[in-house]
Design a binder for these strands. Sequence first.
DNA 1: ACCTGAACACCGTTCAAGT
DNA 2: ACCTGAACACCGTTCAAGT
Lengths: 201, 201
Amino acid sequence: MTEPTGSDTRSKILIAAATMLAEDPTARLSVRAVAAKAGVSTGSLRHFFPTQQVLLDTVIEGLQTLDIPDDPMADATKAPAERLQACLQLLLSAVGTGASARQNWTALHDAYVASPTPEESAQTFLAMERLAVSRVDRWLAQLHEEDALVDGDREQQSHFLLSVVNGLSLERAFPGARARLGFESSSLRLAVTAVLRADAS
Amino acid sequence: MTEPTGSDTRSKILIAAATMLAEDPTARLSVRAVAAKAGVSTGSLRHFFPTQQVLLDTVIEGLQTLDIPDDPMADATKAPAERLQACLQLLLSAVGTGASARQNWTALHDAYVASPTPEESAQTFLAMERLAVSRVDRWLAQLHEEDALVDGDREQQSHFLLSVVNGLSLERAFPGARARLGFESSSLRLAVTAVLRADAS
DNA sequence: ACCTGAACACCGTTCAAGT
DNA sequence: ACCTGAACACCGTTCAAGT
């Protein structure tokens, strides 16, 4: 019967850090501050979180995974804009946050950017891309049937939305990602407004 | 005949910091390191740059303003949407295409993503980011004066536009970039429509 | 295995003191 | 006005020592 939340003090540390962030989103989660709030020593904190970066990544990841819906486009009770935004949020969440986001981007970079155009592995990348485009396109097709979409080339709209998600995903891997998380939803909302009719709020 | 570059030691400090960045883009520009490189005391450095943030911003701004093309926002003969799109296109063009784009992204990746979050070089990255945000924000401020902007948080709008540019820039480094170039202008156009009033075509 | 707390090598900022 | 360097209050990480 091992607790899925981990050991007691490990949880205490995570809860302390999350509480500090909740009380003040700009709070600095220093070793000593978190350890004191959790009522443990700095050495104990280091035992579970070997580096400060690991601690921060774990905290942020815990905050993100509090919401995990099904296919949001199916939820007919919500407005088109809300549903499309939820779908994009789903794509975005795939990259993860913190160390996970960096790891994902490093893998993509090494495979498709670093080498002088491998030409052969390009096929798998392009296949993945087509898959993503078609997925977004299916969402837009649904919204088109509801007459919620603005006029225009749907392929262009799909590429546009994917570029926004790509940009936001990338920014999750850059320094200062925590401070930028607050802009994600507003950016997605702005992206959504560009492809939806104004009256379909 | 006062030198526009400022006092001698002030220049020495800026040159020292810029040199350090040139030698190692991930170098940490700490007070003591820069002061030592410049051959001045930490107190002297603080006299000209009251805070570390001011120093970093000044250094980055000095590096950026080495290239200053024409500002498309000044061309009053064109519609707001056209001007803003031209400005974003300018940002986008900085990354280059093909091998140049891949090279630029590799440099960014190695410096800020690959290493287990260098935390120390984060400051220079964040200074660059603030510069980019403020640049976009200045364009939006101009459009706001012309009453061409939709209501809403301008900082959110700036971040949104930058995310679009980041996404498109990144996609220039991925396989199949040539085929995607055709979607760039339509994506920028869609992004622009999200922040401009509908009547201000 | 878990936990402690001191110690180390750094930070950025302040400030009395000099010129 | 410019410049010095010590001092202060932090930081993240390491590690011998305990249980």
